[in-house]
């Protein structure tokens, strides 16, 4: 999920950079050097997962998994997502340098919120609560990201309000599919490797 270059207003871009920088500096400080390989390899996995296209009717969507990124990477979501976005812009020319801040914040902040809110339930003893929390993490991860992106567009100019609205509506099915996929992954990992869901940082 991206906002393109050349669309947003200066104040929005600057706030994005400030917010992302703050998040990244906390994230990096909380991440010990010993954790870098783990954060990196898990982040690479999410990078690859975002290349997977899932069919929806005649079209397809790519996985975002913001909520799951948060659950697994915790505070390290910020620097990990920043690097992933940088790589996307270098390798595929999706997004560029000036929107890095806004785009990083739009993905990493929801990830972090999902971690703070749902991590306990997902790792709890109660299986059905974990299933619900997994769905909500997947759903809210995308929802919050879309809301931040729509807000960034709407603040940048009145003419973008229609675009923002369309983006919100278009992502509704995405939120549901992400919810289903994340909760399935959560159930699987609770059985196969519970410590993976504890959050790296």
């Amino acid at each position: 999920m991206h906002i393109s270059e050349g669309v947003l207003a200066a104040p929005v871009l600057i706030s994005g950079v400030a917010a992302a920088a703050a998040g990244c500096s906390v994230g990096l400080r909380k991440m010990d050097f010993d954790k870098t390989p783990r954060v990196a390899v898990m982040a690479s996995t999410f990078f690859v997962a975002s290349l997977i296209h899932v069919p929806i009717g005649p079209s397809s969507i790519h996985l975002i998994l913001t909520g799951l990124v948060g659950i697994i990477l915790g505070w390290a979501s910020f620097p990990a997502i920043l690097v992933a976005l940088l790589l996307q812009s270098i390798l595929f020319q999706f997004g560029g340098l000036t929107t890095l801040g806004v785009n990083c914040f739009a993905m990493a902040f929801p990830a972090l919120l999902c971690y703070l809110i749902f991590s306990k339930l997902i790792n709890g003893k109660n299986q059905s609560l974990a299933v619900i929390a997994g769905f909500l993490a997947g759903f809210c991860g995308v929802m919050l990201a879309v809301i931040i992106i729509a807000a960034a567009l709407a603040i940048s100019g009145e003419q973008f309000i229609t675009v923002a609205r369309l983006i919100l509506i278009a992502h509704l099915p995405v939120m549901i599919i992400e919810g289903l996929i994340v909760t399935t992954i959560v159930v699987f990992l609770r059985r196969a490797k519970p410590e993976l869901l504890k959050g790296v940082v």
């Binding site: 997962a49 996929i181 994340v182 399935t184 990992l189």
Partner: peptide, 11 residues
């Protein structure tokens, strides 16, 4: 199926 695919990759 895709969920299991990603879960396996994560594992």
């Amino acid at each position: 199926t895709y969920a299991y695919l990603v879960a396996n990759l994560l594992l």
